[in-house]
Design a binder for these strands. Sequence first.
DNA 1: CTCTCCCTTGAACACGTGTGCAACATTGCA
DNA 2: TGCAATGTTGCACACGTGTTCAAGGGAGAG
Lengths: 329, 329
Amino acid sequence: MVKAFVTSVDVAQRAGVSRSAVSRTFTEGASVSPEVRRKVLQAAQELGYRVNRLAQGLNNSSSNLVGVVGANLSLPFMAKQLDMLSIGLLRRGLQCLLLNAADARSDIAPLIELIFEFRARAIVVLSGEPPMSIVDECLANGVKLIVINRQLARSDTDIILSDDIAGATLAAERLKAAGCQKVAVVTSGSGTPTQLRRCEAFSDVMTAAGTDIVVWHDGPTTYETGLKAARELLSDRQIDGAFCVTDIMAIGFLDGARNDMGRRVPEDLSVIGFDDIPQASWRSYELTTIAQSFEVLTEAVLAALDHELGQSVITNVPVALIERGTVRR
Amino acid sequence: MVKAFVTSVDVAQRAGVSRSAVSRTFTEGASVSPEVRRKVLQAAQELGYRVNRLAQGLNNSSSNLVGVVGANLSLPFMAKQLDMLSIGLLRRGLQCLLLNAADARSDIAPLIELIFEFRARAIVVLSGEPPMSIVDECLANGVKLIVINRQLARSDTDIILSDDIAGATLAAERLKAAGCQKVAVVTSGSGTPTQLRRCEAFSDVMTAAGTDIVVWHDGPTTYETGLKAARELLSDRQIDGAFCVTDIMAIGFLDGARNDMGRRVPEDLSVIGFDDIPQASWRSYELTTIAQSFEVLTEAVLAALDHELGQSVITNVPVALIERGTVRR
DNA sequence: CTCTCCCTTGAACACGTGTGCAACATTGCA
DNA sequence: TGCAATGTTGCACACGTGTTCAAGGGAGAG
């Protein structure tokens, strides 16, 4: 350590006032005379003073940090979510403590522990399942817990869910309207609640309509998984429709169907995805998909930050069918 | 605030020892008897004690935080970079304070200010140009500054650069070998140092070889920009090669060339990109590109964290040509 | 038994801030 | 002039740690 940071004591000394005056100058709505304020600001400027947020946080036993737990940040859906969230937090004067769980199936408990240790104001879980015990600890310690698209059977936590069931139903109806006779459902082997819900809701509608369905699940939620699904499924030439529970897999599936399995889309095969990631609109795909508004989702998280502690607000992010070119009209 | 967190005083009381003993139990290499340690650990367990990292940081006037400044996190290149970096930091026992600059051209000074206020151990700049004054402040306050792919003419800062010049040269040689007669260079209008270097180095090689080149630049670094470039450039039917300084633009360019401008790739037109983002290997693109190893880049950043303060280490991340299918053989 | 040495323990301080409280200065009004 | 009311200022405390320092205690050697 070469030299310590400038403290409020230094500033006070230079300005010839008490340390309290310095603190008050930088505190919104505190009572300071214009004269003192001017002197303090000048001294602070000259010395290069910055508030020590650690001390600040220690003092009011809470920081402005918000812990964000995510995984697979390079997947488009997660990246987009994190991008918008981190901007929104910053705009609200909050800072984003990013904890990357690396693997979607890894245990996030130690990461949440870390967030506690920093006395963060809130925890946002984008990936993984928080252990139940955490919920109580959050409540006891005044930390807001916000859970996105996770299965968490608690009535005292903010939960934000994209409307998977409505979305999957929209997808099913659309494929039925396209006249599909035998339909594949493609999902990963990770078994996240979101994917399970989509899968199940879709299957329900289809079986109710008497349409043949075949469910395929394996591997992580990636492009390669979609590709693999196409190669394995499409040897069955009867399959003329597919619902991929995630755009990233849908895109892989499309590529496999066209390039490896010689299908024309949408003439021979209709494909529909979920999420509306940026790549879905790329010219090579023009993927018909179920969109969930990233704006609405982000706003919901930010709004949840202001909710009462222990209040349970379940926000459903609305979905909409985006017609592009991968389903027969 | 419903209730305060458990403190070391509470634990000490319960265990019937002094607070020092508690602190020592949780400090690596401190001297505690096995008996006391056991009692402390048990009490801590029962009460749910966690260290307060704010107090900890205040005490040793430095936190384990590392400030990361980025922008456009949803672009694949940035997302991948952030993903690997945040994992690496966590593995080393450091926490990632993510500051999203939103726009690549926006001023990052206030964000860096924030990092200072948190007494972070280091600042990693992935996007934007830090003001010169920051460099001195970092030095004065013992904060490590690590700059990635930025133009920063300082000899006392860690700078990590992908080898843009070598990469651009590789690209140029490859297009020459493909027999291209008139070549376009596609870059964004943002004028980031990396893009400028690639653009310039490529142009140098090509003009030296006497090959016709036309430089196009406009808009942000996005898919849409690449698309637009193709539409505007390819009315000129003489153009038979293109170097896009970023994969994301190369992919847009490819889509525009094939779908809007009726070009066959690589028969009529050779396209080469830079970065080797995940999408470049997707079956619909199979983009020939210049790869920079994300692993090497990340390792370089992590290694830089251990360097002496004020030491200048310029790391060149090596590049390699990845042959796929968009350049004629 | 005495002395030395080593290990363990608790008290006290420092880290930098926000704020309650009491003292003080100033103004307005009667 | 006297008094109340208002606005400003400094002192002192609390926030929760890690660490220095001196003291205590036990063991081993002479």
